[in-house]
Nucleic acid binder design. Structure first.
Lengths: 145, 145
DNA sequence: CCGCATCCCTATAGATACTG
DNA sequence: CAGTATCTATAGGGATGCGG
């Protein structure tokens, strides 16, 4: 660690170019499988994805388990610590909404929709949803590539 | 750009290990001079600092001007776009407050104090302060190294 | 198939010494 | 003072291999 500043602490844990995108995929697009993350439009490469998932797990943001039906499949899900990154993602989304003039409006929907939900129900609703997400199979929202 | 996701957009602009720390130094510790940034406890090196300040300026987060009294000195200050990163920093601070158990409590003060100010007066107060910061010489808060 | 691991190569980040 | 120059280290892309 470079310092014990709280901001620096966070940046060293998830302040890279990929971690929050993986969290985004899990929270907003219900992705849970390795190959699903590979399909995102940022085109993460396999070695980087494997490395990020490992360090995210090591640092307690993500947990791994084997699928009950297909035992060769691995399910990634968020811990509470990981879900608690959502308010940060939302603030970033608000900032991008203000300054990312070139961003197609429909691309902002997933995050702006979450802001509305968050304002009325709070992040608790999201936590409940995500904590059951690996038990109950949900219709996976299409990630609009 | 890897994609036009709003989150990715933001990450490509300031999602590195240094940019937000420089913003932190400007917002919370009133730093404005090149050498002041070098003194921060994370020990940024000169080339990285120069590079970050340049790209932060290019991307409209920071503006440069020459000091009126000492013309060889360059003053860095935040634009509105840069100040609007504060809510993001605050959310990160809240997260670190929850999960950074080992962080010395007094290290959290600068950000928790800002949260209180933000909740009562909002970020507007901060904006007014910072917009006059390069005109009115303020007692520079010591960055607690 | 699925989830990586490995290898190779390039690009960017960063430490240190030095300069206009 | 505010950076460059130079060199080194790490991150990352792409292809491929490999165990379960």
């Amino acid at each position: 660690m470079r310092s014990d500043c709280p901001l620096n602490y966070a940046l060293e844990l998830f302040g890279d170019k990929w971690s929050l995108l993986i969290i985004r995929d899990m929270v907003f697009f219900n992705k849970r499988y390795y190959h699903e993350f590979l399909l995102s439009e940022e085109k993460i490469s396999t070695n980087v994805l494997a490395n990020r998932l490992l360090t995210l797990e090591k640092n307690g943001f993500v947990k791994k388990e084997k699928s009950l039906d297909h035992k060769q499949k691995i399910i990634y899900s968020l811990t509470e610590k990981g879900i608690d990154l959502v308010p940060i993602i939302i603030e970033i989304g608000l900032w991008s909404d203000k300054y990312g003039d070139h961003i197609p409006p429909h691309k902002k929907d997933f995050i702006l929709k979450e802001i509305r939900v968050n304002k009325t129900n709070g992040i608790q609703t999201l936590k409940k949803e995500l904590h059951t997400a690996h038990n109950v199979q949900k219709n996976t929202d299409k990630h609009s590539d």
